[in-house]
Nucleic acid binder design. Sequence first.
DNA 1: ATGAAAGCGCTAACAT
DNA 2: ATGTTAGCGCTTTCAT
Lengths: 339, 339
Amino acid sequence: MAGIEDVARRAGVSVATVSRALSGRGPVSPATRDKVRAMADELGYVVSPSASGLASGTTRTVGIVVPFLTSWFYTSVIEGAQATLLDHGYDVTLYNLFANGDVRGAVFERSLRRRRDDALIAVSLELSEPERALLTGTGKPIVGVGGPLEGVPTLSVDDVGVARLATEHVIMLGHTRIAHLGGDVDHELDFHVPSQRRLGYEAALTAAGIEVDPTLFVVTEFSIEGGYHSAKQLLGDPRRRPTAIVAASDEMALGAMLAARHLGLSVPQDISISGIDGHELAEFAGLTTVDQYPARQGAQAAELLVECLASGLKAVDATDRKVDYDLVVRGSTGPVHSP
Amino acid sequence: MAGIEDVARRAGVSVATVSRALSGRGPVSPATRDKVRAMADELGYVVSPSASGLASGTTRTVGIVVPFLTSWFYTSVIEGAQATLLDHGYDVTLYNLFANGDVRGAVFERSLRRRRDDALIAVSLELSEPERALLTGTGKPIVGVGGPLEGVPTLSVDDVGVARLATEHVIMLGHTRIAHLGGDVDHELDFHVPSQRRLGYEAALTAAGIEVDPTLFVVTEFSIEGGYHSAKQLLGDPRRRPTAIVAASDEMALGAMLAARHLGLSVPQDISISGIDGHELAEFAGLTTVDQYPARQGAQAAELLVECLASGLKAVDATDRKVDYDLVVRGSTGPVHSP
DNA sequence: ATGAAAGCGCTAACAT
DNA sequence: ATGTTAGCGCTTTCAT
């Protein structure tokens, strides 16, 4: 392995100059910079991340913490963040909490404590106080994505507004028996998202003068299976049957669409269904949804951190930034009492 | 930030002893080890990864390279690998090639060249010769998952056998008009997997004395949408219509099931459909599949590397190891000419 | 613009 | 079992 001294010798300059030439920090004449680069390439020299990190105190690495990986939202956020970070020369360390198992403690106490990274992106995490202290106490910048985090700058969608928009859309179509599939409030991973979305749903109903019927709200797991099972109960029961379902996520909505078809119901003739997220399958399935652009959220979080690191600031302003969302109307919703 | 010297002073020992006590390498009396640990905890001391890495030449980090993230197979492999790595105290650096875009070059030339990691797991990669040289030329262990890689130790499923098994299953059920949805051989990401699976499909037919009908093979994208579109063409054409479809992946098979339903066909009465992978939705959808346990493959790859690193070997034996697979029969396949 | 040299915070010989 | 010390390979003042 060629070291910086080899490059210096071959280029006929000092190691300091090589360091400056290669990192771009500090003044170097164009001529020597080119020569140094050429020699480095020739020798196949690459700076040692450990040595560089030790000397400079920066690792050019950003950590991304997720509750688990097998969910479209998380992987989209990661992809968005990573693309931006790569552009700026940062590598990504992935911390997976594996859905709150006993692994979670290990990740915080062992991995995250080491502070291998210059900054952190925490996706959809509900942190305990010691966990929060651990992450923020290091003095390194951190940004949360997917929900406000106490004391941490975050990027999040207006969950009330999103659900309200989806609900108002079906109200506009003439629906009044509108069901809502939402998350269990006690579910640790999804913190306040479910309850916020439920509030948005109820707000839309109330504003339209429609009474909130508790039998039309079903606690549902945030997955295709979850949506399927809840919708099947809801749609299979003649006494409860709604004309529209506003699901708190696209995965739930996709499951609900399946359930409707299995019951012989046509979408949207017999039942209108809408989701929230902007899932990659929504277009294929013809699902009306409120897109919250998760990849873009990841990219924004990364940009915030990169700017922060570039400017030498120790932390991003700890406020919650609301991100864009748009209603995308497709074939799964239609007027009530269609032909 | 407390350093190792602070701990040493507080514990009344030398820095070397602290290092030994905390890392577990080298002899330390139980008493002093406990005291050192207590002092370290008290001071909130954590070793600096950079310093430790520079001094020891090891980073306790393993890199995982994937073509992209938004696919169930890749995230499953990552989760499996990461769980095992975490157990052994390794963090994970994630390298995403973003499906062969121009980003790919940047990842190889910039990120991977730095060799931040002690070892590498390459998932489903078709490497160019310079890329392979880059990865293997560092003298650090590497393992491929999801397909044999020239000159690299790999873990892969017997793609011929897997497809053959799925095909034999429907042959056993009496089918003879059996279609195959497979990948485009020219598709860069999926290297030989599609062609191998096609070979397995054809081998099963031939062995059973069934003629291979080229109109029953459809080049299909490895996704739900892909399977949906191909199946719709296949099933909608009365001249071509098969009684069974063997898809090269579960995602394709799920799409095919949807297409069948949209055409008013019952599964498996009118059409039997099987997949390959063991996708999380297969059980929910009642899809017959050949499970190849991707998470377990990731875990095995991680174990191989951890052992290799622990034993001080520089590389894992460069052979291809075949992993387990099992036929999982569900409701999507049934006898031909059912009631 | 360039060079000399002092660390960065550890680990691993080696010595005791 | 523990201490001493020489690096690990860079970055970054501080001179020049």
